[in-house]
Design a protein around this nucleic acid. Sequence first.
DNA 1: CATTTGACGCCAA
DNA 2: TTTGGCGCCAAAT
Length: 83
Amino acid sequence: MTFKEKVFNIVKGIPEGETLTYKEVAKRAGSPNAYRAVGSILGTNYDSNIPCHRVLRSDGGVGGYNRGIENKKKILKKEGALA
DNA sequence: CATTTGACGCCAA
DNA sequence: TTTGGCGCCAAAT
């Protein structure tokens, strides 16, 4: 189980309507300060099976999204995770 | 194999 | 309070 696999598993385990920060995901992955790696992994290796749109920034910002940031916000709002 | 990038986060000014 | 700069880990090139 590599770091990115853990990250994928964690993000995949995020319930609908819930949102985690990159830092939280990294922390659960085993490296609390690898939040950079989390973004890198998701950014370069995006998977359709993974609801990475539920991963937001610590500031409460949406962060980014390969499919389009607007689409991500739309999904979050639709799920009720975003105000 | 070494260097740069990358969807971030925190500290300082 | 807002803007700028530095630091971090892992993957990709």
